[in-house]
Amino acid sequence: MLEITRTLVGVVAASAAARALDGLVVPGRAFACRAADDELLLLCAPPVTDEVAREVATRLAALDPDALVIDTTDGWAAISVVGSDARGSFGLLSPLELPDAGFLQGEVVHVPAKVVAGDDRVLILVPSIWEAHLHDRAAKALGHTGPLEAHPWAVPTS
């Protein structure tokens, strides 16, 4: 059984010196994705996005006064693929090889994407200009019909 949902996820982008990001203590309500040496994406449940952004900005300011922390939630569209075959089905969407768990980035449905993999679930984020494309192609590839239901995202517990 495979379930595809539109996922509501808060995304905070933090740009800072690599050493500052290395030393950042990530708030427990956020999941950290290191997109580059000097760039971190923090995923969180939508209601706490502001708090996460504030907290990260405060912590990073102590490590790099020049750090930039921005809520970029509107820049992303996300879906979750959940089910025992979620990882196997990912091959229908992307040439990327999923890690056992955690973050990776690359091409999904032929556009640049960020991916968070778990045991039985995969979260896929693409720039929001491709939201319709992501929904269409993922639903078609995974055999989903009808509109995608929306669910808020929760930080993985393990």
């Binding site: 740009s15 010196a17 750090a67």
Partner: peptide, 12 residues
Amino acid sequence: LHVHLLDQTAQV
């Protein structure tokens, strides 16, 4: 240079 460049094309 110490510059942060954030592409906001999709976000804004």
